[in-house]
C-alpha cells in the first residue's frame, strides 16, 4: 500500500533523481539572467520546458530555495551599516578589516553567508546562487509563496509522448484580473436588424463554443453575442415546432 507516500520516483534512483532536480533548479534559475550574445540562450527568460511530473517535483524545491534567499535578506541589510565602500587591500580597507566594525559586519552577515552556502550545496552553480539571492529574493520579497507557475503544453514529447509543461517564475505574463463586467448594452431595434442574419449563421458554431466561452471570456462583447445566439436558438426552436 502506498498510503501517505509523497513524491514521485520518476524512474530514477535516489541519487539520480536528486542530481537531476538540482540541475533542473539551477537551469531554471539561470534562465532569469539571459546573455543576449549567446546564440544558445533561452528564448524566454525565467522559464524551462519539461514534463508535467518533473515540473511538479521541481516546484517545491525551487520555491524553498527562494524562501531561503528571502530569509537571508534582513541579515544582508543589517550588515550594510558596518560595511565599507573602500577598495579591497587599500589602507582604508585594511584599517576597516582590522577594526571592530569588521567583526560586527562579519557577525551580522554570517547567517546570509550560511544561507548562500546551503543554496550552493544544492545548486552547485555560482551564477545561479547570485541570481537567486540578488534578483529573485528582491523580486519576490512581498509575495508569500507561490513563486512559480506550471502550465501544460499541447505538444507531446517526441519519443515517449510525455506530457510537457513549462515552469516559470511568476510576475511576468500573469493572468489579467477579471474586471467587473461592463454594463450590458441594450440592443436597439437597428442593432437587432443588423445582427440577426449573422447570428443565425453562427448559431450552430456558437453552440459548440459556448462551454469554453463561458469559462474564459467575460468581456461584454461576447456576452452580447451569447445573448444574440440564445435568441437565435429560440427562434430556430420555434420554427421547428
Amino acid at each position: 500500500m502506498r498510503h501517505r507516500l509523497r513524491g514521485r520516483k520518476l524512474g530514477r534512483s535516489h541519487s539520480h533523481r536528486k542530481a537531476m532536480l538540482n540541475n533542473m533548479a539551477a537551469s531554471l534559475i539561470r534562465t532569469v539572467r539571459i546573455d543576449e550574445d549567446d546564440p544558445g540562450r533561452p528564448r524566454t527568460p525565467g522559464r524551462i520546458v519539461t514534463t508535467v511530473p518533473k515540473a511538479k517535483e521541481l516546484r517545491p524545491m525551487v520555491e524553498k530555495l527562494i524562501t531561503l534567499a528571502k530569509k537571508a535578506r534582513p541579515h544582508e541589510e543589517r550588515a550594510e551599516e558596518f560595511a565599507t565602500t573602500a577598495e579591497r587591500n587599500t589602507s582604508e580597507w585594511k584599517s576597516w578589516r582590522e577594526s571592530d566594525q569588521w567583526q560586527q559586519w562579519a557577525a551580522a552577515r554570517a547567517p546570509a553567508v550560511a544561507a548562500r552556502r546551503r543554496a550552493f550545496s544544492i545548486l552547485r552553480d555560482d551564477e545561479a546562487v547570485d541570481i537567486l539571492f540578488d534578483e529573485l529574493a528582491d523580486r519576490f520579497i512581498d509575495r508569500p509563496g507561490g513563486y512559480t507557475r506550471i502550465v501544460r503544453i499541447a505538444a507531446r514529447r517526441l519519443g515517449d509522448a510525455g506530457e510537457q509543461a513549462l515552469i516559470e517564475f511568476v510576475g511576468e505574463r500573469d493572468r489579467v484580473r477579471r474586471q467587473s463586467a461592463a454594463p450590458a448594452v441594450v440592443p436597439t431595434s437597428a442593432d437587432e436588424s443588423e445582427e440577426e442574419p449573422a447570428a443565425e449563421d453562427q448559431a450552430a458554431a456558437d453552440d459548440n463554443e459556448e462551454m469554453s466561452r463561458d469559462e474564459t471570456a467575460p468581456e461584454a462583447e461576447s456576452a452580447e453575442e451569447g445573448a444574440v445566439a440564445e435568441s437565435a436558438d429560440e427562434e430556430t426552436e420555434e420554427t421547428k415546432d
Binding site: 502550465v151 501544460r152 503544453i153 499541447a154 505538444a155 513549462l166 505574463r173 500573469d174 493572468r175 489579467v176 477579471r178 474564459t216
Partner: peptide, 14 residues
C-alpha cells in the same frame, strides 16, 4: 493547455 496555434492561455499570451 496553452493554445498550440497562438500561445494564448486564460486571458493572456504565454
Amino acid at each position: 493547455v496553452i493554445c498550440p496555434n497562438c500561445g494564448h492561455y486564460q486571458g493572456r499570451t504565454l
